[in-house]
Structures are given as structure tokens and as C-alpha cells.
């Protein structure tokens, strides 16, 4: 890997890391399940970016694209299921607050 390539990788890696920081911060700090879900989405965005960057830098774009597409499909299914769970949670507890769920710690 040449110097220039390595620099490009590092630049992309910094943005990947920034998106990860945003996502994890959001998950840790917020009390609202929807916001946690937004944090998770940001994490998935970061990873999708990283996969495409990996393909772009190494010349394996076909592989990276097909993997990214699969990841996107899985992401959507997870988000839809999460949305279903959150709506059910709201029906039960009448709130989206995480603190309400901390009823059965062991």
C-alpha cells in the first residue's frame, strides 16, 4: 500500500470513527428508544460507508457492493422489527422512556 493510498484510508477511517462516536454517544446518553434506534442507524451508516470505502480502495468494488446491498436489506428488516417492538412497548408502558423498562433487573 503506497503512502498516498494509506493517507486516503486514514482520511476515510477518521470519518468512519466520527460517525461511530456519534452513534455510540447517542445510544449511551439518550433515554428515548426512538433516539437509540437513530443512533443504531448512524452506526449502520458508518459501517456501510466503511464497506464501500474498503472496496473502493482495494479495487474490489463488486464484492463490496454486493455485501453492502445485503447489509442494507438486513438493516431494513432489523429496523422494521425494532419499530414493531417499540410500538408494542409504547402500547404497554405508554412511554418510550428507557427508564420505565428497568423494572426487572436481576
Amino acid at each position: 500500500m503506497g503512502i498516498e493510498m494509506s493517507q486516503m484510508f486514514w482520511t476515510f477511517f477518521i470519518f468512519f470513527a466520527l460517525l461511530l462516536v456519534e452513534g455510540f454517544y447517542c445510544i449511551i446518553v439518550t433515554y428515548n428508544f426512538l433516539r437509540v434506534l437513530i443512533g443504531l442507524e448512524l452506526l449502520m451508516k458508518a459501517v456501510t460507508l466503511f464497506i464501500i470505502v474498503a472496496g473502493y480502495l482495494s479495487g474490489n468494488l463488486a464484492l463490496a457492493q454486493s455485501i453492502a446491498i445485503t447489509v442494507i436489506v438486513i438493516e431494513v428488516v432489523v429496523v422494521v422489527v425494532a419499530a414493531g417492538i417499540i410500538i408494542g412497548f409504547f402500547r404497554e408502558y405508554d412511554s418510550l422512556n428507557i427508564k420505565n423498562a428497568r423494572s426487572m433487573k436481576g
Binding site: M44, A46, V47, F50, I51, A54, S58, A64, I67
Partner: peptide
């Protein structure tokens, strides 16, 4: 999943 996918991205690259 995020951890595993990052690792997969690294494998694609290297």
C-alpha cells in the same frame, strides 16, 4: 453486527 461488519470490511480491504 457493527463490529462484525467493520471486521468484514477490513478483510475485504486487506
Amino acid at each position: 453486527s457493527v463490529m462484525m461488519l467493520s471486521s468484514i470490511a477490513l478483510f475485504i480491504m486487506f
